[in-house]
Design a binder for these strands. Structure first.
Length: 450
RNA sequence: CGGAGUGUAGCGCAGCCUGGUAGCGCACCUGCUUCGGGAGCAGGGGGUCGCAAGUUCGAAUCUUGCCACUCCGACCA
């Protein structure tokens, strides 16, 4: 993309409505625009990040055997009345009426609808297990939206729903999602610690929240320092290997980690030596539940077993805050100059900076590199504007692309260009071909197309 | 929803107390000079002062009501 043809309204001053750093940086980098409290437009740069996050989530859900569907944002109230949650959900649910006066709602979640879909489509035990998910906008009319996209009222969420014949089988479905979440967040460069959690209004008896550590997090968290030594890479695993999947889950759940609601100070002291006890604040980026027959019972979601008997389906649900992650990743990865994107979610991989637009040799060199990088699968934002060099560097640092490729007449005279690593600040001068090779390799290594 | 606060140009702000028809910085446009880490000079464009009613000869400014947004608390991806 050529910056001269792009739409990226960056700001030098911080809009006063933004309190936390991720919100400030998203606004300053021209990623989002607030439309009303807790509701945002995603501008081109922000939208690219959102799509990258969504892509990783989708790839890992698919890998774990979940099947993607798309349910509507608007739902009829009927299903919710059947599950008794129409009343329970309270003012958080945005209720609307259609022209016939029918009660409708903007979905805050989809347990009822997916259960109904599944009930209608499956009659035999032979059709289980299954896991269906979608990535769709939700609306929850929060009492107090805040922190930009981290706690919006309208937000993009991945929600998956598992259907099993027995509680044991349901446990494996739960464990698969647990592992898929570890992989998903690892690919985004995050260490998301699984913590025991309250089940809240969703209900059920087994639940974990995945939290990343950040000072601005909304939950107080208590955990074992040993988590830092875990293998957080997106390790390979055979999801059909029930024992192995359970082992990974056991490994992560053996260590103490809990949010304040579930925290037990006595147990913490008993299980974790003092030197390893850590506390801090965390941002919840994922939440998984196993709730058994809570929805299948009232909605009559059953299948016929081998002996002709009726089996009530055991279910779980699994959420990831896709739009929240955009803010959460920035909270976890930024410095004084701006955002520092992990390669896998960066809006572009490389910022190509032309230091002297209008200089024939420099323009030609930039164009050549731009085309070659594109062919190598590297996404490039080419700053071909006639801004001053200083301003260009500030902008590049602000928007946080992982690499900057800096091309100017002085370097070209010596046959070199400069490559800057945004994260480390390291700069290297090398011939254009070598720079190209280096960037292509770095992006291939870290970009992690699943 | 309880408490606190803010609405004046795209963004950040001053002006309001003590009414007289709107200003600063950045950004934007034009020209010249500059040009390897947010340039200088000169000229220029842009605002129903959140909305409505009231007081007044006259309201950004005073009064009342409403709306929007932000922050602090209880819930959640």
């Amino acid at each position: 993309m050529r910056l001269s043809r792009y739409f990226m309204p960056v700001m030098r001053d911080v809009p006063k409505e933004a309190e936390i750093v991720s919100h400030q940086l998203m606004l300053r980098a021209g990623m989002i625009r607030q439309e009303s409290a807790g509701i945002y437009s995603w501008l081109p740069t922000g939208f690219r990040v959102l799509k990258n996050i969504e892509r990783i989530v989708r790839e890992e859900q698919d890998r774990a055997g979940a099947l993607e569907v798309l349910m509507p944002t608007i739902q009829s109230a009927d299903l919710w009345k059947k599950s008794k949650r129409y009343g329970d959900y309270g003012d958080e649910m945005l209720r609307i009426k259609d022209r016939q006066g029918r009660d409708m709602l903007y979905g805050p979640t989809n347990e009822e609808m997916i259960t109904d879909i599944f009930r209608q489509g499956v009659q035999s035990y032979k059709d289980l297990p299954r896991n269906l998910y979608h990535i769709q906008w939700k609306f929850r009319d929060e009492r107090r939206p805040r922190f930009g996209v981290m706690r919006g009222r309208e937000f993009l969420m991945k929600d998956a729903y598992s259907f099993d014949l027995s509680a044991e089988a349901g446990r494996h479905s739960y464990n698969k999602m647990f592992v898929a979440y570890l992989r998903t967040f690892a690919r985004m460069g995050l260490k998301a610690i699984p913590m025991r959690a309250d089940t809240g209004p969703i209900g059920g008896d087994q639940s974990h929240e995945f939290l990343i550590l950040a000072e601005t997090g909304e939950s107080a968290v208590f955990f074992d320092r040993d988590f830092y030594d875990m293998d957080w890479r997106a390790f390979e695993i055979d999801y059909d290997d029930v024992g192995r999947v359970a082992e990974v889950v056991a490994d992560f759940t053996a260590k103490y980690a809990a949010t304040d609601e579930k925290h037990d100070a006595g147990e913490f002291e008993k299980r974790v030596p003092e030197a390893r006890r850590l506390s801090g604040r965390g941002i919840e980026v994922g939440h998984i539940f196993f709730f058994g027959t809570k929805y299948s019972d009232p909605l009559g979601c059953t299948v016929q077993g081998p002996g002709g008997e009726k089996i009530t389906i055991e279910s779980g649900s699994y959420g990831i805050g896709v739009s929240r992650l955009a803010g959460a990743i920035i909270e976890a990865s930024h410095d004084d100059a701006g955002i520092v994107w992990p390669v896998a979610v960066a809006p572009f991989h490389v910022g190509l900076v032309n230091l002297k637009v209008g200089d024939v040799a420099t323009d030609a060199a930039c164009l050549d590199l731009y085309e070659k990088l594109g062919r190598a699968g590297v996404e490039v934002l080419h700053d071909d504007t006639d801004e001053r060099a200083g301003a260009k560097f500030k902008t590049m640092d602000l928007i946080g692309l992982p690499f900057q490729l800096i091309v100017g007449p002085k370097g070209l005279k010596d046959g070199v260009v400069e490559v800057k690593d945004r994260k480390t600040g390291a700069r290297e001068t090398l011939p254009p071909d070598a720079a190209l090779k280096k960037l292509a390799e770095a992006v291939a290594a870290e970009g992690g197309r699943g």
